[in-house]
């Protein structure tokens, strides 16, 4: 059985674990670096990216996460997407720098501007409810990056190799199609390695 971890330093961990389990994989909360070793893939959940980054540094997660990502699939939602971006608008440095894209934080405004919208996601399907909470969006992407979804001309989901990211929260709905899509990526990556 595939084993997928959810980085559990802070944020919506339980919901991702439920969604992954519904997709028929073993899901586990990851609080320590050692726990990465046994995983086939990793989800970085929504939460506060500044708070998560501080804990990533504090517990020496930065290099192990980069190392993990060289081999195995990673899926970031909202704050997780910010952690994966190579460039963050208005900031001199980024975090894990996995996906060749520039993101803008809190790009749709403050909480009163948070919203739900129907999305079309390439390879996943239509009528997908995206829940955007103080969400970022992707300003621009490099040539290697595949754009999976846009909302009002803004990029809100993308894929590069074995990396997947979404500006919205797939874990807050009962629609697990995007998690299923990631599980398939993990499956494929495991088969290639084997």
């Amino acid at each position: 059985m595939l084993k997928i971890g959810v980085l559990a330093l802070q944020g919506a961990v339980r919901e991702h674990i439920q969604a992954l389990e519904s997709c028929g994989v073993q899901a586990t909360a990851v609080k320590r670096v050692e726990e990465l070793a046994e995983l086939d893939g990793l989800v970085m959940p929504g939460g506060e990216s500044t708070a998560m980054r501080r804990l990533i540094d504090k517990y020496g997660f930065l290099e192990p996460l980069k190392e993990f990502a060289k081999q195995k699939p990673v899926f970031g939602t909202c704050a997780g997407l910010i952690l994966m971006a190579k460039r963050i608008q208005g900031q001199d440095s980024a975090h894990l720098e996995l996906i060749d894209m520039t993101v803008e934080r809190n790009a749709f405004g403050r909480q009163v501007d948070s919203f739900e919208a129907e999305l079309m996601i390439h390879g996943v399907g239509e009528d997908y409810t995206g829940v955007f909470i103080r969400a970022p969006f992707i300003v621009e992407v490099g040539p290697e990056v595949e754009i999976l979804s846009k909302h009002n001309d803004r990029i809100v989901a993308a894929k590069q190799g074995h990396f997947l990211c979404a500006a919205f929260h797939p874990e807050l709905t009962d629609d697990y199609r995007l998690h299923q899509y990631f599980v398939k990526m993990v499956q494929t990556s495991k088969e290639v390695v084997a």
Binding site: Q10, R14, E48, F115, E116, A117, F132, L172
Partner: peptide, 21 residues
């Protein structure tokens, strides 16, 4: 259709704060 202030968006905001101070 874009909907703001839904129950999911409002409760979801608090979900993102979990495990935090």
């Amino acid at each position: 259709m874009l909907k703001t202030g839904t129950e999911r968006v409002k409760r979801g905001m608090a979900e993102m704060q979990k495990g935090g101070v």
